[in-house]
Design a protein around this nucleic acid. Structure first.
Lengths: 166, 166
DNA sequence: GTCCCTATACTCGGATAGCAAGTGTCCGAGTATAGGCGG
DNA sequence: CCGCCTATACTCGGACACTTGCTATCCGAGTATAGGGAC
């Protein structure tokens, strides 16, 4: 079992959008070009991010994507949940209520202990993802990334971004 | 994204094996019958548990499965890892090193911050699963399960288990 | 009665199909701009 | 010269094929037992 590759793409794409000038927009095709990703497929997931209210999409000639909230208010969990869905990793099918030793369904009061434990573990995972914001990862990237890459990113962004009508 | 249904089967099956008399064995077919599971498919995953050293498999007429360790020394993570594999949920493909703004690969010193954050979250998930042992869930089940079900389980087990040659 | 041998019945394990979900792609609906035309 | 209108180019969003991995199944390799026969 593994997370969809699109999760990585979505997080990196959001990180790129952080350095977008306020009010500007960046087309999905440019966003895909920045990481050499398949544009059409990335667009599919950018749409998911838009539905989740993480990014805003504006159509038309000057259109594109921009963050819908400040980076400090977007957590990694928000992005993961938008791309993968909020459904839990573990789904209890209540097999304990089946088989030769099963009692009538109404006799099972509390939830299945195994499902509970799995749910707790998922909650810990989710809590850790909620603790990290987009601002955090961008700050870390800005410190660790090669200076030349930061420079080129700024230049590329200036050329690719669609500035608002001033 | 969701975990394989076999994870639930494996945990419940191990929980059943806890109440097996010491030295006895329970065939995979019986184990499947207890939860009305597809026997052939469950066998596939029981083999995984055996490879991981969680259960022992003995072949032959009196053969079957038994736990390889005391229930208190088997964690939920052990079972999940055995069934799903130890590969991380999130796999970083280093897309930051690609595209127009990328620097030469050797310029990227530390690991990708996003991958690090995802890995931390997974570690929290794993830690929570390692905190819960098979003994824990069985104790909880024994308390919460309907008494009639516990009774029937004991009877069924007495009939299905293959006792060691005394 | 005791021992040995053989046939049997039962076990697990890996190799083989079917299906759902993730992956990848395309085209249509909609909008802000750019240019041409009229006043 | 200025304003309006139209055609254009560009955007996103949802509908359509393809590949990977989970789901399900079967048959073969191997072993402890049970029974029969010989001593």
């Amino acid at each position: 079992m593994r997370l969809s590759e699109a999760v990585e793409w979505a997080i990196h794409s959001c990180a790129v959008l952080v350095s977008l000038p306020h009010g500007a927009a960046l087309p999905g095709a440019k966003l895909a070009e920045f990481h050499e990703l398949p544009g059409a497929y990335l667009a599919k997931h950018l749409a998911s991010l838009a539905r989740a209210g993480i990014v805003e999409a504006t159509v038309g000639r000057q259109g594109g994507y921009r963050l819908a909230r400040p980076p400090a208010e977007i957590t990694l969990w928000d992005i993961v949940a938008a791309v993968e869905g909020e459904e839990p990793l573990f789904r209890c099918t209540e097999i304990r209520r089946r088989g030769p030793a099963a009692d009538r369904p109404s006799a099972y009061k509390g939830p299945c202990g195994i499902a509970l434990a799995m749910r707790n573990a998922e909650a810990a995972w989710r809590a850790e993802l909620e603790r990290v914001t987009l601002a955090d990862v961008c700050l870390g990237a800005l410190v660790n990334a090669p200076p030349a890459s930061v420079q080129r990113t700024a230049e590329w962004m200036a050329a690719a971004a669609k500035l608002p009508t001033a």
